[in-house]
Amino acid sequence: MISWNNNALRDVLKEVDYAEEIYKCIQCGMCAGSCPLRHHMDYPPRKIFALLRTGNIDLVLNSKSIFLCTSCYSCIVRCPRGIHVMDIMHGLAHYAIKMGKISRKNTATFGQEFWKQIYKRGRVDEKDLSRRYFFSDGIVQGIKNALSMADMGIIMLLHGRMKLLPEKPIKGIKQLRIMLDKAEQESRR
């Protein structure tokens, strides 16, 4: 018998946007069949939903699948039940990070750094994002990471595809942060 954790499921339903839609799932597997990275997933979306419904929250939050969504919308387009599959996967990744369960550290870090860029300036500075992402594990690992991608950086630089000046915050950055803070509060309700 599969373990059942009712409270944990209740938290997922509250903390993950669109999670209530898992009850509409008919387990047809269209989402899994449409997913570009399905071959690399431990549990494709269909199984993720089945695990959630049976209360196996830990398996879900520790699975690498929830971090492997490329946001291509194929599953959403093809789901015969109109479930926001992609958004649920995103929401699960968000919740897993919040719970300290980070099965794909690089992807989690990259996404978090991306969001920090927006919160900091209102816009994303690609080179600053890459730098912060590469150096998220300290300076030694950072230098290794940066060197391993140096060829790409040089290509971009030489072809005029790197913005040299640092990105300045937008004029309305203070108000934007107030709005984003409020949106975060509202999300918890």
Binding site: F110, G111, F114, W115, Q117, L176, A183, E184
Partner: peptide
């Protein structure tokens, strides 16, 4: 004038859906 980033496809790591909708609504 003074547009902001749309959140693209990886912001979910740091934000929930409403925050990303607000970002775009601005």
């Amino acid at each position: 004038d003074d547009w902001n980033c749309c959140g693209a496809s990886v912001s979910y790591a740091g934000a929930r859906d409403l925050s990303i909708r607000v970002l775009n609504a601005r």
